[in-house]
Amino acid sequence: MKKSLEKLLNKPLPVDPFKPQRAVITDVEELAPDHKKFTFAFLDESLAKVWDYIPGQFVMLTVPKAGEIPISICSSPTRKGFFELTVRKVGRKTKVLHRLKPGDVVAVRGPYGNGFPVGIMEGHNVLIIAGGLGMAPLRSLVWYILDRRSRFKEVYLLYGTRNYEFVLYKEELRRLKEREDIKCLFCLDRVETPEDREWADIEGLLTELIPQVKLEPSETYVAVCGPPVAYKFIGKELLKNGYPESQIFVSLERKMECGIGKCGHCQIGYKFACVDGPIFPLWDTKNLPEML
């Protein structure tokens, strides 16, 4: 027997990591077609007070009768007592979730995953690049930074989506744009209606916004979340503009059943998206096969 193996068995039984905690839906907001933001509070008040997480982490949400789904947290850990999840209606379980109303009870376990390296980001510029629903986990990071604004240098938010109708957190982002301490640049794939025109800084892709960012690349950490197809182009553009590979972080998703590295589904190359990710340095996207 090896020491490492002997140690594994000589442990007391841990608390069951699979057992979720009950949480009540306190608010549901329709953000865009098929996109809803749910606000939850743990029924156990003492848990609600201390429950902490890192921007970029996710929870396993039990939709009663339907099953468990992994969802990124879109609220910031700097605001305690509640948490928010933005969910697109895309499959069987999310369809059931979208039917739930305030007062309904769900079950939640987590938080899981590594989250963005916020500790390392402190003292640097932060460039946040969100595409479509990728805005959700990055909203957590945006508010985390804004609530601890003095610890960070310049902050940029680039956000691109289909058209104005699909813009998430419309009012919130409008107010962000008026703030001095974060620079917001928005783009839309198609600019057709007056609302589109009023919203968008440019018509086009996120890659076209990157050169407009006035930051010293070596002093900047970049957080990217969006559709995986975009990562290749965004990554290339960032490298072209001098951002160091080791300071670019992307968020990836896979099928997940457990969230703690036991079910095997979320493997990307030799890593598990649930425990080694979902936030990966850009280097991994080159190093691990079939990453994007």
């Binding site: 490492s4 193996l5 068995l9 841990p14 069951d16 990591p17 590295g261 036991k262």
Partner: peptide, 18 residues
């Protein structure tokens, strides 16, 4: 044993194994 017990140990597996 390593898969189930190294990180986030599964209490069921540990109990069976013990």
């Amino acid at each position: 044993d390593s898969v189930y017990l190294k990180e986030s140990p599964d209490p069921r597996y540990l109990e069976v194994r013990k």
